[in-house]
């Protein structure tokens, strides 16, 4: 169970987040929607434990994974090392299998800089799912990709979520992405930002 209960977050004098509380059940996908600059990434960094300066509490499991807007790889280590260094208990065979699953099985011994941006993002996805996370956090992972690539990445993510089954928190400004992942949608609104009345609850989901 993941329980987020943020009372406020300030940057200096200005308050960016108001009271925000929600839970994510095991295997559930939650999307936080909102226009850019509203504080989505701030909320995500608090939930991920990257930002610890806020009022409130966050309950999160041990095994977590994150996918950023940028691939955020180790450019000085090979593609396969980007998996095995982050997940020390992952065998080389399992790592190769994971690379094959995201469609870059033949790139294991290259450096990330030798991959296209689309392939680097696939590697970032592979890294996220390779650790069998209980909780997956994604920060606009399909932004700045062309429509076709974004669609294949979205399908790939959907498959991986189905196979691995983590609780997923997903931040985006594109409603269609959230719907494609059949996520429960929460909307971030106002200043300081709080959650708007949610449009689709878990029970109403078709």
């Amino acid at each position: 169970m993941i329980r987020i209960d943020v009372t406020s977050k300030h940057y200096g004098e200005s308050q960016v987040l108001g009271p925000i509380a929600f839970e994510i059940a095991k295997g559930e996908t939650v999307a936080v929607l909102g226009p850019s600059g509203i504080g989505k990434s701030t909320l995500l960094r608090i939930v991920a434990g990257i930002d610890t300066r806020f009022e409130g509490t966050v309950q999160r499991p041990e095994r977590m994974a994150i996918v950023f807007q940028e691939p955020t790889l180790l450019p000085w280590r090979s593609v396969i090392q980007n998996l095995t260094l982050v997940h020390p208990d992952l065998s080389r065979d399992a790592a190769r299998e994971m690379l094959a699953k995201v469609g870059i099985g033949d790139k294991a011994d290259l450096f990330p800089g030798q991959l296209s941006l689309g392939q680097q993002r696939r590697l970032a996805l592979a890294r996220a799912f390779a650790g069998n996370p209980d909780f997956l956090i994604m920060d606009e992972p399909f932004v700045s990709l062309d429509a076709a690539t974004a669609q294949t990445m979205l399908d790939l993510t959907k498959t991986l979520i189905r196979d691995v089954g983590p609780a997923t928190l997903f931040v985006t400004h594109a409603r269609n992405e959230a719907e494609a992942l059949s996520a429960r949608i929460l909307e971030l609104r106002g200043n300081p930002a709080t959650l708007g009345p949610h449009l689709i609850s878990a029970k109403e989901k078709p």
Binding site: A48, A65, T72, H87
Partner: peptide, 8 residues
């Protein structure tokens, strides 16, 4: 941030 979330 990456290293932190993945508990490297």
């Amino acid at each position: 941030a990456m290293a932190r979330v993945y508990r490297i």
